[in-house]
Amino acid sequence: MPSSTHPTVGRADPRLPGGDVRAGDDHLRHRRRRPGRGLTDDRFALALMAPAAVFLAVFVGWPLVKLIVDSLYDIAPLAGTREFAGLGNYGEALTSPGFLGAAGRTALYTMLVVTLEFTLGLAVALLFNALGRRARWIRTLFLYPLMIAPVVAGLLWRFLLIDNFGIVNELLTRLGIIGGPDAIGWLSDPDIVLFSVALPDIWLTTSFMALVLFAGLQNIPGDVLEAARLDGSGPWHTLTRVTLPLLRPVIAVALVVRGIDAARAFDVILIQTNGGPQSASETLSLLIYRTMVRFGEPGLASAMGTLYLIAMLGVALIAVATIWRPGKVVR
Score class of each variant (00 low, 15 high):
residue 263 A to L: 11
residue 192 I to V: 12
residue 26 D to S: 15
residue 261 D to E: 10
residue 22 R to G: 14
residue 211 L to E: 02
residue 325 R to H: 13
residue 185 G to R: 02
residue 257 V to D: 05
residue 214 F to A: 01
residue 249 P to W: 03
residue 302 S to H: 01
residue 110 T to E: 05
residue 275 G to R: 01
residue 17 P to A: 14
residue 318 I to Y: 10
residue 43 R to A: 15
residue 67 L to D: 03
residue 323 I to Y: 00
residue 195 F to S: 09
residue 214 F to D: 01
residue 77 P to L: 06
residue 115 T to A: 11
residue 70 D to E: 15
residue 172 L to P: 05
residue 124 V to G: 00
residue 324 W to Y: 14
residue 59 F to A: 06
residue 169 N to V: 07
residue 166 G to I: 04
residue 109 Y to F: 14
residue 223 D to A: 13
residue 304 M to Q: 02
residue 163 D to G: 07
residue 318 I to E: 08
residue 326 P to K: 02
residue 280 A to T: 04
residue 36 G to F: 05
residue 289 Y to R: 10
residue 195 F to D: 04
residue 116 L to I: 11
residue 71 S to N: 07
residue 196 S to P: 07
residue 294 R to Y: 13
residue 313 L to R: 09
residue 14 P to W: 09
residue 236 W to Y: 08
residue 289 Y to S: 10
residue 190 P to A: 10
residue 5 T to C: 14
residue 96 S to C: 05
residue 69 V to G: 11
residue 86 G to N: 05
residue 173 T to A: 14
residue 33 R to S: 11
residue 331 R to I: 12
residue 331 R to G: 13
residue 292 M to A: 13
residue 26 D to I: 15
residue 164 N to R: 15
residue 50 A to T: 11
residue 256 V to E: 00
residue 275 G to D: 03
residue 296 G to I: 12
residue 38 G to L: 06
residue 314 G to R: 03
residue 299 G to R: 02
residue 27 H to Q: 15
residue 187 L to Y: 03
residue 211 L to R: 01
residue 261 D to L: 05
residue 103 A to R: 01
residue 279 S to R: 12
residue 273 T to D: 03
residue 325 R to W: 09
residue 153 A to K: 00
residue 43 R to V: 15
residue 190 P to K: 10
residue 113 V to W: 02
residue 322 T to S: 08
residue 62 W to Y: 14
residue 68 I to E: 04
residue 146 L to G: 08
residue 160 L to K: 06
residue 261 D to K: 03
residue 234 G to N: 03
residue 281 S to Y: 04
residue 150 P to V: 02
residue 295 F to P: 04
residue 1 M to V: 13
residue 171 L to Y: 13
residue 163 D to K: 08
residue 151 V to D: 09
residue 227 A to Y: 07
residue 112 L to A: 15
residue 35 P to V: 07
residue 104 G to H: 09
residue 95 T to H: 07
residue 223 D to Q: 12
residue 75 I to W: 01
residue 114 V to A: 05
residue 102 A to N: 03
residue 214 F to L: 05
residue 59 F to Q: 03
residue 231 D to R: 02
residue 239 L to R: 05
residue 9 V to W: 14
residue 227 A to R: 09
residue 160 L to E: 07
residue 144 Y to C: 06
residue 292 M to Y: 14
residue 99 F to N: 01
residue 1 M to H: 12
residue 39 L to Q: 11
residue 181 P to T: 11
residue 68 I to T: 08
residue 118 F to S: 01
residue 266 F to H: 02
residue 90 Y to T: 02
residue 75 I to P: 00
residue 324 W to N: 11
residue 74 D to Q: 12
residue 13 D to C: 15
residue 85 A to H: 07
residue 279 S to H: 10
residue 127 L to D: 07
residue 156 L to Q: 01
residue 58 V to S: 09
residue 12 A to Y: 14
residue 302 S to R: 00
residue 290 R to I: 03
residue 146 L to I: 10
